[in-house]
């Protein structure tokens, strides 16, 4: 038998064994689906965070406040500096008059300004950083502060770092939890498949005594695990797709929470492919683990 013929036999036997195992197969598929659902939640949260940070990165802004004594020549020099900086996407001069108009939209501030009798604000620049260089905000701020008429640079450094750190913690915690869930699922799947092997121990013994080669003895069991894993993945993919289409729209319509609907389909596709791979891997490793049991090795 050539390789393709052997592969065909193993796949066919793998499918038949999934059917023959009946309830135990259902149990394994459900366990894998439940595991993948949890893993996809962790992955989903991670992807949503990535997406949110990516969006934030794209819109990262800083405000550069100039001193009251800044002349038009100083402002022009600063404009030249910003035009030549590779980290800057765009910038806009906000004169103190325009800034005051904006402030006066708030009645309480308007009263304070009237009481002061003069405009206390200064000219400023709103600087938008290029996509993906939010991490260089510190160095740009430092460079700007070296300019003689720059009084202050504000870009929410503390908040950015806090959110960034929080996201990192969530990602690591998610990874840790996902690993634990993965290992637990592997353990349960391996033990459930061991039960299936135990039910077929007489057949396994006959195979050995009839002189069946290793690929005929091991192949169908490994294939059975992979098929069960893939079936678990498909169930989770269907659930997630329903959530994406139905819940995503509902959330957008009633709650204004549009992250599910706006997450690009490529992200979902990537998640589904990951799920397929993970399902197959859990099934195969679970079957391999089951085949490593001492009594199974002695039989096979």
């Amino acid at each position: 038998m050539n390789l393709i013929s052997r592969l065909g036999y193993v796949i066919k036997e793998g499918f038949l064994q999934v059917i023959r195992a009946g309830g135990l197969s259902v149990a394994v598929i459900v366990i894998i689906a439940a595991t993948l659902l949890q893993l996809s939640l962790f992955l989903g949260v991670s992807r949503v965070l990535d997406h949110a940070f990516s969006s934030a990165n794209q819109k990262f802004e800083m405000a550069v406040f100039l001193s009251a004594s800044t002349t038009q020549a100083d402002t022009a020099r600063l404009q030249n500096f910003l035009s030549g900086d590779t980290r800057v996407e765009s910038f806009q001069l906000i004169t103190k008059e325009v800034a005051l108009q904006d402030f006066r939209k708030d009645p309480s501030i308007d009263q304070m300004v009237k009481a002061l009798g003069e405009n206390p604000l200064t000219d400023s620049f709103t600087v938008v950083l290029k996509n993906g260089v939010a991490g260089e905000a510190d160095s740009l701020a430092a460079d700007l502060k070296k300019e003689s008429h720059v009084e202050d640079v504000s870009y929410g450094k503390g908040e950015w770092e806090t959110v960034s750190n929080l996201a990192r913690v969530i990602r690591w915690a998610g990874l840790l939890m996902a690993s634990l869930v993965f290992l637990t699922a592997l353990f349960i799947v391996a033990n459930t498949l061991t039960l299936a092997l135990w039910a077929r121990r007489e057949d396994m013994l006959s195979m050995v005594r009839l002189g069946a080669p290793v690929w005929m003895r091991w192949g169908p069991y490994l294939c059975e695990g992979i098929i069960q894993g893939l079936m678990g993945s498909v169930i989770v993919m269907v659930v997630l797709e329903v959530v994406r289409r139905v819940a995503g729209e509902a959330l957008q319509k009633y709650g204004g929470f549009d992250i599910l609907a706006t997450l690009p389909f490529q992200e979902w596709l990537s998640l589904y492919l990951n799920l397929l791979v993970m399902g197959g891997v859990i099934g195969m490793l679970g079957a391999f683990w089951a085949l490593q049991k001492k009594w199974v090795k002695e039989l096979l």
Partner: peptide, 10 residues
């Protein structure tokens, strides 16, 4: 057929 496969005669 199983035995033919097992013995390599399939």
């Amino acid at each position: 057929l199983f035995i033919l496969r097992a013995k390599g005669f399939w």
